[in-house]
Structure formats: structure tokens, C-alpha cells
Nucleic acid binder design. Structure first.
Length: 192
DNA sequence: GCCCAGGTGGGTA
DNA sequence: TACCCACATGGG
């Protein structure tokens, strides 16, 4: 999940998932292996997700951090505490807030809301946030209004992505699972 | 052939 | 602070 979070940066998941499968088939989805493999061998492996030279460096930066700070163990990393891990991740080159929060939510099951381009676009077009709202402002919007539950944040993010892609709304505007209907439950109208 | 995709960081004004 | 741009491939 952490590798996928880096590889999908500004890239369709369909392309990132090919790169993840390539790493898996080569049995490289192991921190120690990624740490030791030379850049020149790693980069071609993840070619399909684009920006492969940058992303190879970012992956190696992440596993080096995992090795040095958390004994190479995602389990140990998880035990280190949410705010500390988030700060550490943001200090890594090529790991910004969305990638850091994706790792926290999806790889470490921490209750953190992931804000992506779809989230920003949807809220902005419904005048729920100003155009220049910061990542943290948007994140706080959700985190102060929803129960802090990993599974709930996970589902909300998935629904926003679905809404962003135009799923559901186009096919059935009355669908009870319509993402925008769910977001309406947040009572965001008076926020920010 | 053109446009865009679930970012990030460095450069410039 | 606010843009602009490089990074790069694959699919519609």
C-alpha cells in the first residue's frame, strides 16, 4: 500500500498497479529488497507508472527511512504514533501531504482523511471551500465533523474519488449511495 | 496525435 | 505568496 501510494502520484491507478504487480512478481515488495536494489534496476521495473526515475528515488528514500527509524518494519512504524509518523513522512523527499496521509490511512490503518484533487474539485465547485483552501483546512473540515474511524475515512475517500470520476451521479442521480448525497450529511454549508 | 491522470519540489517574480 | 514547470507513461 505504501509503495502504491508513491507510484500513483499524479498517475491513474491502472498504470500504478501494473508497476506494483511488476515489483510483486519479482518478489521486490519487501523493504530490504527495495533498499538494496540499485536504482538502474528498480526504475525500469516501475516504468508503467510514469515519472519512474523520480519515483524510484522516492521508494528508496522511504525504505531507507523505514530501515533507519523503524527497524524496517511497517508494524513498528505503526506503533510509533500518528503525529510523529506524519511529520517524519513529510520530511522525506517526494512525500507530500496526500502521499503521507495515504500511507497513514491505507498502509497503517490510521484515522487520517486523505485530501486529493477530486476532494478539492468537488468541494470547490459546490462552493463548500474557497478556491485557495489549504490541504490542512480541507482535511480539518472532514476530521472535525466525522467520527475518527479509519474505515469511515477510507469509504469517504473512495466515494469522493467515485464522484470525481463521475460514477453514480451519471448513472443514477437518486442512488442512496451517491457520494454528494453522503457529503451533504456533513452539513458543510456553513464551514470555512 | 492530443489530452489527462488520486503529486511533489524547485525556480521565478 | 503565487504561479510555472519538470518529471513520463498509458489509455481514451
Amino acid at each position: 500500500m505504501a509503495v502504491g501510494a508513491v507510484l500513483t502520484q499524479s498517475t491513474a491507478w491502472s498504470n500504478a498497479s501494473k508497476a506494483v504487480r511488476s515489483l510483486r512478481s519479482a518478489k521486490l515488495l519487501v523493504p530490504g529488497k527495495l533498499d538494496r536494489i540499485p536504482h538502474r534496476e528498480l526504475a525500469p521495473r516501475i516504468r508503467s507508472c510514469g515519472y519512474f526515475n523520480q519515483k524510484a528515488k522516492r521508494l528508496k528514500g522511504f525504505v531507507r527511512y523505514l530501515r533507519d527509524r523503524h527497524a524496517g518494519s511497517m508494524r513498528r512504524m505503526r506503533g510509533a504514533g500518528l503525529s510523529r509518523i506524519r511529520r517524519e513522512l513529510l520530511d522525506l523527499p517526494g512525500i507530500g501531504p496526500e502521499t503521507a496521509d495515504s500511507i497513514l490511512l491505507y498502509a497503517l490503518q490510521q484515522p487520517v482523511f486523505v485530501v486529493d484533487a477530486y476532494t478539492r474539485r468537488i468541494l470547490s465547485r459546490h462552493s463548500l471551500i474557497p478556491r485557495n483552501a489549504s490541504y490542512e483546512e480541507i482535511q480539518a473540515l472532514f476530521m472535525t465533523r466525522l467520527p475518527r474511524r479509519t474505515q469511515l475515512f477510507n469509504e469517504y475517500h473512495a466515494l469522493l474519488v467515485a464522484a470525481g470520476k463521475g460514477f453514480c451521479l451519471k448513472t443514477d442521480p437518486n442512488c442512496p449511495l451517491c457520494p454528494l448525497r453522503r457529503i451533504g450529511h456533513l452539513r458543510l454549508e456553513n464551514s470555512l
